[in-house]
Nucleic acid binder design. Structure first.
Lengths: 336, 336
DNA sequence: TTGAAAGCGCTAACAA
DNA sequence: TTGTTAGCGCTTTCAA
C-alpha cells in the first residue's frame, strides 16, 4: 500500500516560491496577490494535485463544514427520504453529513451528541425521536434543528413539522364522511407530540361530528415488535374479541398495512366492511392491495425547510421563524 | 446564543496543575502517570465536562475515525438497510460515517471522493454504482471496500458481493421448473457486473435446461424512469405487441412489481398465465399482492463482511481475502 | 513519573 | 503585494 505522502500547503508554497500565506490567499480567493502569483500557484496546485486538508482548516477555523443528522432508523423509508433530501441540500451548500442512527436508544443518541460535538460539527439536525434534547448539547451552542420532533423547553432550537393535528383530523373526518361510526385509532404508547397531536385531531374530529368517543377503540401500540406486526396482532385480537368497529385510523402506513392484513385474514372486506386511513405516505401504502388511503407528509419540504433554517443559524443569521408547520394532504385510495 | 468557550486540554492541564502531556497520557491511558495524578486529572475533566476535540486529534494523528460511505441513493431500501448495518458496526468500533449520495452522477461521486480525501477519512465504503473508481482516489492510499460493485483493475480494493450469477441461475431455474418456457429477463442497460452476472446466470440456466434463448425476451431497461415504471411500461408494450412469454425474471423487485402491475392491468393471471421472480428481497416483494418470489440478498452479511475487511485495512492488517461472494436464496412466494 | 517543545495543516493579524 | 509568525488542540519524542 503506497500511502503517498500527501502534499501540503507548505509544499505548494515551496514549490511555487511563495509563502504559505500567499498560497492560502490564492486558494481562498482572499485577494492580496498578483495575477502572476495566482497563475504560478495554481499551476503548482494542479500539477501536484493538491487539495486542502480540511482537518487543518477545521482546527484553525473551528468549524468542519459537516452537519450531523440524527435519525431513529435510516432504513425507515420516511426517514431515508428525508435524509436523502437533506444530503442533497447540504451537498449543494458545501456541507457533508454524518449519519447517526439511534435505534431509539437514548444512550446511543447521547453518545452521538457527544461525538458530534467533539467533531465540531457546524450544526445538528434531528429527525423524529424523543422530545428532550440532552442539556449538555444545548449548552454547547451548536445550532440544532428538528424535524417532526418538538423539542422541550424554550431554548433556541428550531423545529419543522407536519401538521399532525390536522392530519389526524382529516383522516378521521374522511372515515366519518365515508360512513364510519366506530373508528379505531392505532396510535403509539410513547407520548411524543407527533402521537398526541394525531390523537387530538382524531378526538376533535369525532367531537365535531357528534360521534361519541369509545375508549376501547383507542389503541396504544408498544415498541416490542415492528409497527406492522403490532398492528396486525392487535387488530386480530380485537376481531376475535368481537369488538365492533368499522373504520381504522392507523397513525402510520405500516400500522395501516398490519391492520389490513389482519382484516383480510379474517375475511373482513376492505373497504366494504371496514375502512382504513394511514399516515405518512410511504410506498407500502401505494403498493399493497387494496392501496391504502393515507395522510401524505411533504418529506422534501420538511427536509428543505429544516436544512435551510439550520444553515441560517450556522451562519449566525437570524432565523425568521423558530417553528414551521407544513400542511398534509389526504390521498384517497382503495381502503376508503 | 451563548457559544460557550470550549474547554481544551490546556485548561484541564492548568486546572489540575499538570502539563498537557500528562493530561493526554491520562486520557489515552498511556501509562507514565501516577494514580494520584490520574485521579486529579479525571476529577477536573469530569468537573468541567471536558471532551477531546477530535479535530485537533485528527490533525495530529492524520486519521479521523470516520468512514465515508458512497451510495447511489439512500432512499433505496436495499441500500438503506446496508447503510444501517454499516453504521451500527462502525459505531461499535468507534467510527462515524459520512453519507454520500451520488444519484448515480459520476461528477458527484468524484466530488465526494475528493471531499472524503480532504477530510482524511480513514476508509471508504462504496455500495453499488459504477465499476471504475477514480484513479486519484486509489493513489491516495485510503483503503476502499466495495459492496455489489466490482472495481475494475487489479488494485488493492476489496469487494464483497452476492452471488449474482447464482441468483440469476436459480431464479431462471425456478421459473423453468414451474413450467415456463418463454422467459423474459428485465435487466438493465448499464453494463455493471451485477447486471451481466445475473444475465449470465439466466442464459446458462436456459442452456442447461435446453431452452433456446429468445433475443426478443432479453430486455434492457434504461435509466430515465424509476425501475417500477420502466418495467411496467415495457411489459405493457410487450403484451400489446403480442410477444409470447410465460415467465419473467426481473433483476430487481421493483422491476418485478412493475411487471406484475402491467400484467394485472391486462388481466393476465399471475402466477397462472405468467410467473415472476424478482431480486433483492426488499419489502415491496413481500407486501404486494400476490407477493413476489424473489432472490434474497443477505444485506446484513454483505455490510458486515465489507465493513470488517475495510477496518482491517484501515488498521494496516492484512486482509485474508480480497473478494468475498455471499450466497443468495430463492424465496418462493405468490408469483410462481 | 513528569514536563517542555515540536509539529500536524491551516488561516489571519501584523509587518514590511 | 508578500512574508513572518502565532496559534487552533492534540500527541509524542526527548530529556529530566
Amino acid at each position: 500500500m503506497r500511502a503517498k505522502k500527501k502534499v501540503s500547503i507548505k509544499d505548494i508554497a515551496r514549490l511555487s516560491g511563495v509563502s504559505v500565506a500567499t498560497v492560502s490567499r490564492v486558494i481562498n480567493q482572499n485577494g492580496r496577490f498578483s495575477e502572476e502569483t495566482r497563475r504560478r500557484v495554481e499551476k503548482v496546485i494542479k500539477e501536484y494535485h493538491y487539495t486542502t486538508n480540511m482537518t487543518g482548516k477545521s482546527l484553525r477555523e473551528s468549524k468542519s463544514n459537516t452537519i450531523g443528522v440524527i435519525v431513529p432508523d435510516i432504513s425507515n423509508e420516511l426517514f431515508a427520504e428525508i435524509v436523502l433530501e437533506l444530503e442533497k441540500y447540504f451537498f449543494r451548500k458545501g456541507y457533508s453529513v454524518l449519519i447517526c442512527n439511534t435505534n431509539e436508544e437514548e444512550q446511543k443518541e447521547a453518545a452521538y451528541f457527544r461525538i458530534l460535538e467533539s467533531k465540531t460539527v457546524d450544526g445538528i439536525l434531528c429527525i423524529s425521536g424523543s422530545e428532550d434534547l440532552p442539556q449538555e448539547v444545548l449548552s454547547t451552542g451548536i445550532p440544532i434543528a428538528c424535524i417532526d420532533r418538538r423539542p422541550k423547553g424554550k431554548n433556541e432550537v428550531v423545529y419543522v413539522e407536519s401538521d399532525h393535528y390536522l392530519g389526524g383530523y382529516i383522516a378521521t373526518e374522511a372515515l366519518i364522511k365515508k360512513g364510519c361510526r366506530d373508528i379505531m385509532i392505532l396510535s403509539k404508547q410513547r407520548a411524543l407530540s407527533v402521537n398526541t397531536q394525531r390523537l387530538n385531531g382524531y378526538l376533535d374530529a369525532l367531537r365535531d361530528y357528534g360521534i361519541p368517543r369509545r375508549d376501547d377503540l383507542v389503541v396504544h401500540l408498544g415498541d416490542d415488535l415492528s409497527n406492522f406486526q403490532e398492528a396486525r396482532d392487535i387488530v386480530f385480537y380485537m376481531i376475535k374479541k368481537k369488538i365492533r368497529f368499522d373504520g381504522i385510523f392507523a397513525t402510520n402506513d405500516w400500522r395501516a398495512y398490519g391492520a389490513l392484513v389482519a382484516l383480510q385474514q379474517n375475511n373482513i372486506a376492505v373497504p366494504e366492511q371496514v375502512k382504513i386511513v394511514g399516515f405518512d405516505g410511504v410506498s407500502v401504502s401505494e403498493f399493497c392491495y387494496p392501496a391504502i388511503t393515507t395522510i401524505q407528509q411533504n418529506k422534501k419540504e420538511l427536509a428543505l425547510k429544516a436544512a435551510h433554517l439550520l444553515l441560517k443559524m450556522v451562519k449566525g443569521e437570524t432565523v425568521p421563524q423558530r417553528h414551521v408547520v407544513l400542511p398534509v394532504a389526504l390521498v384517497e385510495r382503495g381502503t376508503t
